[in-house]
């Protein structure tokens, strides 16, 4: 009886391991899994376009999740995997804008606005002080 129970438990444990599809199943290394999930949260699904692939049920999003977990398990850094995807789908696929000549205004405009605001504020304050 005890043996049968043990066998049953073993069987229950073995099934999910046998049916591991990295599109849905976490990596065994928690640090790698955290990296993979963080990356998935910032890769845009090319089918249902407003969503990151981490929250999409599209087949292609699952394919991308699988590729991301495999590449990270193989030792690539998340940014290498992101670059690999951007090489194929363009900047569009990344929800985290990269610094490049096309995205420069995106990064520089807030700095310019801040500098402009500081300039206006300093002039005002100086005038008030006088």
């Amino acid at each position: 009886m005890r043996r049968l129970l043990m066998a049953l438990v073993a069987l229950l444990l073995a099934t999910p391991l046998g049916a591991q599809d990295l599109a849905e199943v976490s990596l065994p290394d928690p640090r790698q899994e955290a990296e993979a999930v963080a990356l998935m949260d910032t890769i845009r699904c090319v089918v249902c376009q407003g969503q990151p692939i981490s929250g999409s049920n599209a087949g292609l999003a699952a394919d991308m999740r699988r590729i991301i977990r495999e590449r990270i398990a193989a030792g690539e850094t998340p940014e290498q995997v992101r670059a690999w995807l951007v090489e194929r789908y363009g900047d569009w696929v990344s929800l985290q804008p990269r610094a490049s000549t096309t995205t420069a205004p995106l990064w520089l405009l807030p700095l310019l606005a801040l500098a402009g605001g500081a300039w206006i504020a300093s002039r005002r304050l100086r005038r008030r002080a006088r």
Binding site: V46, V47, G59, L60, D63, M64, R66, I67, Y89, G90
Partner: peptide
């Protein structure tokens, strides 16, 4: 079956 070629190509559907 795992869409590998499709992603490798940058194809979306």
């Amino acid at each position: 079956n795992e869409g590998r070629t499709q992603v490798a190509f940058g194809s979306t559907g």
